[in-house]
């Protein structure tokens, strides 16, 4: 299992994937190995604690300086070397941009099939998975006959739950062979500016989202205020980024970020399949919309009918009036 880290420690989507991997490894009586991916920094105590909670037996880390600048092919080569050393039968990562890229490289190098965005394991002999296609609006049952079985796990398809028995992962440094050819495509520099906040958005417990109903780039002031009052993250629908009202990394949906917050407040979003695919795992959905028949309203748990530009400022005032 290739594990990604972020400012919270082990990324939430990686914890979810570890849970699914553990549920596969435990009954088979095989150990769960984790490989710290896309970083040459050693894991923190907190990260090791998180991996232990997921029942990880061994965590592979590398300080190889040639991997310090991100290069997908070189990381895939390193992961293949570890997978072969431990005779891995299953190789998984979360279905993030980095995770999907890594596993596509690995499956090409090993010349095996790969399943993207798996939501469940259906059977072991033959190895069959369910995965999201059509942006999550359709599920596909797919046979993965090759060994090792390579697949990514769809973000928020399953919940990260701790193992019955917490483990103490054995930290195992390794030094992969790195070929020059695998470093040709590597990050030469990272510029400030278009920072990808999608990890923070993906992990947010509250998302305030806006669509066409925002009416323009100046229509987000009260929405950003509400986001702030709820301590959440702002998400938008595809039309908002297509029209250039907000940056692309805030887009929730099939071609954007997948979220699964406790609360999703969808303001002025009709609820097209493209958008629904990115937020349908939200625990509670509140729709604010002028159209009572919009799919987002009929599929939401709660709705307020009306113009977001009247409702959201009134909600902000009410929150402040109550002293929050």
């Amino acid at each position: 299992m290739a594990v990604e880290t972020d400012e919270t420690g082990i990324a939430l989507t990686s914890l979810e994937t570890l849970t699914l991997a553990r549920e596969l490894a435990e009954p088979a009586g095989v150990p769960l190995h984790a490989l710290l991916f896309a970083t040459t920094e050693p894991p923190t105590e907190q990260m090791l604690g998180q991996l232990g909670e997921q029942g990880v037996a061994t965590v592979y880390i590398t300080a190889e300086p040639r991997l310090a600048a991100y290069a997908a092919a070189a990381w895939a080569s390193a992961a293949v070397q570890v997978a072969q050393a431990v005779s891995a039968r299953v190789v998984v990562a979360s279905g993030t941009p980095r995770g999907g890229e890594l596993l596509a490289h690995i499956s090409a190098r090993l010349d095996v099939a790969m399943a993207a965005n798996v939501t469940a394991i259906e059977g072991l002999a033959p190895f069959t998975v369910t995965r999201q296609v059509m942006g999550g609006s359709v599920l596909e049952e797919m046979r993965l006959a090759d060994s090792p079985a390579v697949f990514t796990v769809a973000g928020h398809a399953c919940e990260a739950t701790p193992a019955a028995a917490v483990s103490t992962p054995v930290v195992t440094p390794y030094r992969p062979t790195v070929e020059d050819a695998d470093l040709v495509a590597r990050v030469v520099r990272t510029e400030a500016g278009e920072q990808d906040h999608s990890a923070a958005l993906s992990a947010a417990r509250v998302v305030v989202a806006a669509g066409r109903g925002a009416n323009g780039p100046d229509g987000f002031k009260s929405l950003l205020e509400l986001t702030d009052l709820l301590g959440g993250a702002l998400g938008v629908s595809r039309v908002v980024t297509s029209l250039g009202w907000r940056p692309h990394h805030e887009q929730v949906g099939q071609t954007g970020v997948r979220v699964a917050p406790d609360l999703y407040v969808a303001c002025g979003i009709s609820g097209a399949i493209q958008h629904w695919a990115g937020m349908s795992s939200s625990k509670t959905i509140v729709a604010v919309n002028t159209d009572p028949d919009a799919p987002m309203v009929t599929r939401a748990h709660y709705a307020v009918i009306g113009d977001l530009h009247e409702i959201v400022p009134a909600v902000n005032d009410e929150i402040r009036r109550r002293g929050h």
């Binding site: 590597r186 990050v187 520099r189 990272t190 510029e191 400030a192 500016g193 278009e194």
Partner: peptide, 12 residues
């Protein structure tokens, strides 16, 4: 877009 900002690649 990458996790820490805009990632630039230069590939022959």
């Amino acid at each position: 877009a990458g996790p820490a900002g805009t990632e630039v690649f230069e590939v022959p």
